Amino acid sequence: MASIDRTAYPRFARAVSERAEVLAPAVERAFAEHRSLLHAVAYRVLGSVVEAEDVVQDAWLRWSRVDVATVADAEGYLVRVATRLAIDRLRSARVRRESYVGSWLPEPLLTDPDAAQNVLLKESVSTAMLLVLESLSPVERAVFVLSEAFGYGHHEIARLVGRKHATVRQIALRARKAVQTRHRRYDTDQATRRQATERFLAACLGGDLNALMEVLAPDVTMVSDGGGFTGAPRKAIHGRERVARAAVILSAHRPYGSLAQIFQVNDGPGIVIHSGRTPVLAATFHLAKGTIEVIHVVSNPEKLTGVAL
C-alpha cells in the first residue's frame, strides 16, 4: 500500500498525524498518489516552497473530510482544490510582497535532473520563468501553469478554476502572449551550464577575479534576496567586474566551516551553501552563448526550505 511520507513537509506531517488514526487507508492512499502533483502545481503558481506546502496541507484536510467513494475523479478534485487555494494565497502574497525588503525572488527548490521529464514542465520551474510569471494575475498564472506545464485542456481548466471555457481560452492566450514577450531564452544545455557553474564556484572559492570574469558575460546581472535578514545587496549589481568582486566577497564571508556544493536547483546546476545541514544560501545561473548573464542569489533563511538537506 502506498503511504504518505510524513517527513517530507513538516506542516503536512502534523496534519496527517493528528488524523491518521481515524482515516481509512484508501483515503490516505488516494491522496498520496497525487500529492507530488499538487505540490508541483502550487509551487509554480506561488513561487514559494512554504506556501505550496501549506496548500498541500489544506488540500489534505479538505480531502480527509469527503466521502472518497463519491469522488469520480480524485485527481481533478484535488487539483481543483489546490489550484483555487493557490490562487487565493497568491492574491494575499502579492500584498505582502509590496513591503518586502530588497529584491524578491522565488524560493529555490532542489529538482530532479531526469532528462526524460517534459521540457515545458522543467522550464516552468526555472527561476527565470517563475519571475516572468510574477507579471501575470493570479488566475492568468494558474491557467498558464495548468495549460503549458501540465497539459490540461481549456475545458478541464475551466472546471479547475471555476470559469467558463471561452473565458479560460482568452485568459490562456493573453497569458501565453505576455510570457512570450517577457521571457528571455537562455542556454538549456545541462553540460554547458554545469561547466560554467563549476568554473564560477572554483573561482569564488579561490578568490580568482580574472577566472571569475572569464565565465561572466560583460553585462551580467546579480540579483540578491536576503529579505532584510542578511547583508545581501538590496539592489541588483550590474557589470562583469562589479559582480565578480561581489561574488568573491560573498564567498569569503560565508559561515566558517560551511560547504558550497553544486546541486540541481530549479532545473539547472546551482550552488547551495550549507552550514552543517542548514542551508544559508542558494544561487542559480542563467547563461547565454556559454557565459553567465544572470545570477539569482537567495540568502533569506525563511526561503531556503526547498534546498535543505
Rank of each mutant, 00 (worst) to 15 (best):
residue 126 S to R: 04
residue 192 T to H: 02
residue 149 A to G: 06
residue 289 K to C: 12
residue 289 K to P: 11
residue 36 S to E: 09
residue 9 Y to F: 00
residue 295 I to C: 03
residue 229 F to N: 06
residue 69 A to G: 14
residue 75 E to T: 15
residue 198 E to T: 13
residue 254 R to L: 09
residue 238 H to E: 05
residue 49 V to I: 13
residue 297 V to E: 14
residue 207 G to Y: 03
residue 238 H to M: 07
residue 28 E to H: 02
residue 213 M to H: 08
residue 92 S to I: 14
residue 76 G to E: 15
residue 249 I to W: 00
residue 287 L to D: 11
residue 177 K to Y: 02
residue 60 W to M: 14
residue 155 H to Y: 10
residue 132 V to S: 01
residue 111 T to I: 10
residue 309 L to P: 02
residue 129 M to A: 06
residue 101 V to I: 15
residue 233 P to R: 08
residue 291 T to I: 05
residue 227 G to R: 09
residue 58 D to F: 05
residue 178 A to H: 08
residue 267 D to I: 02
residue 59 A to M: 07
residue 46 L to N: 12
residue 149 A to E: 06
residue 91 R to Y: 09
residue 197 T to V: 13
residue 211 A to C: 01
residue 36 S to W: 08
residue 61 L to S: 11
residue 256 Y to T: 10
residue 283 A to L: 15
residue 290 G to L: 13
residue 299 S to V: 14
residue 299 S to F: 13
residue 63 W to D: 04
residue 193 R to G: 07
residue 250 L to N: 10
residue 271 I to R: 02
residue 135 S to C: 01
residue 195 Q to E: 14
residue 192 T to K: 07
residue 20 A to I: 06
residue 76 G to P: 15
residue 198 E to P: 06
residue 197 T to M: 07
residue 221 T to N: 04
residue 111 T to Q: 05
residue 25 P to I: 04
residue 167 T to N: 12
residue 229 F to Q: 06
residue 168 V to F: 02
residue 258 S to P: 00
